[in-house]
Amino acid sequence: MATDVHRPVIPSPEATGAVGSAQAVHVEGLTRSFDGRAVIDDLRLDVRPGEFVALLGRSGCGKSTLLRILAGLDRDIRGTVLVPRRKAVAFQAPRLMPWKKVWRNVLLGLPGKPQRAVADQALEEVGLSHRSDAWPKTLSGGEAQRASLARALVREPDLLLLDEPFGALDALTRIKAQRLVGELWQRRGCAVLLVTHDVEEAVLLADRVLVMDDGVIAHEQTVDLDRPRDITDPRFAELRAGLLERLGVDTAAEAA
C-alpha cells in the first residue's frame, strides 16, 4: 500500500495518496498556537527520503515544537502533516528509562518479542555493545546519548528526528558523536531532521540547512560540499558566515 508509508498526523482529504513517496516529510499550512500565540504559523516543509536536513533558529522560535509535531507527540495542530510510519526520536537528554538495563531500553516499544541480540547489534553500531548490561545511571553523558541513538536506530526509521542531541555533550565527545551520526546516516540512508543551535554542526552534516523564524522556515541553504567535509575549507567558512548572519550574529568580529 502506497499510502501506508505516509501517515497523516491529522487526516485531511487531499493529503491521502496525493503525495507519493517522493517525500519523507510533507508539511503544509501547519499552525500551532500556545494560548492564542502562534508559535508555528502556516509553515511549509518538505524533506526528501534519505535527505539530511538541519534546522537552525534562535532559542524559543519553535524548533522543538515542530519536531514534536513531526514525531506525533503534539496533535493540537492545524494543517497537513505527512510523516513516515517508521520514525524515531532522540532528544537532547537521552531519556533512558533508569529502571531498565541499557539493552532493555533499546528494545522498549518494539513490536513482538525481540531478542536481546537485536539490541546488541544496534548497540554495536554505536560502539556501545560492552555497556549493554549496564544501568543507565552508570553511563557517561556521551554513552547515554549513544544508547539513545541506538534505541532510535533499532526501529529502522525512515525518518530520524534529532532534537539537539549533542547539546549537553562536552566539545570532544560532541565531535565524535557528530561523526557517528554522519556515518550512521550514510549507512542507513534514512531522512534526518536535526535540530541544532550549532551552525558549524549544521553545515558539517546537512544536505540542506533551514533557518526558522517567526513560525516559518525563513531561509534555506543547500550545502553542496563534498563529504567528509573540512571545516577549514573556505567555502565552509563562507556558508557558516552566511548562516550566522541570517541568525543575527555579527560575523565581522568572528572572522578576525
Binding site: 514534536r68 514525531a71 506525533g72 507527540l73 524515531a88 526520536v89 532528544f91 531519556r95 528509562m97 531498565k100 522498549l108 516499544g109 518494539l110 513490536p111 534505541r151 526501529r155
Partner: peptide, 18 residues
C-alpha cells in the same frame, strides 16, 4: 520519560507498565 515512551510507540498499557 512518558513522552519518550510515547515516541517509542508504547501503548497506554505499555506506558503504565514500563
Amino acid at each position: 520519560l512518558i513522552e519518550a515512551g510515547e515516541s517509542l510507540g508504547l501503548s497506554r498499557w505499555g506506558l503504565v507498565r514500563h
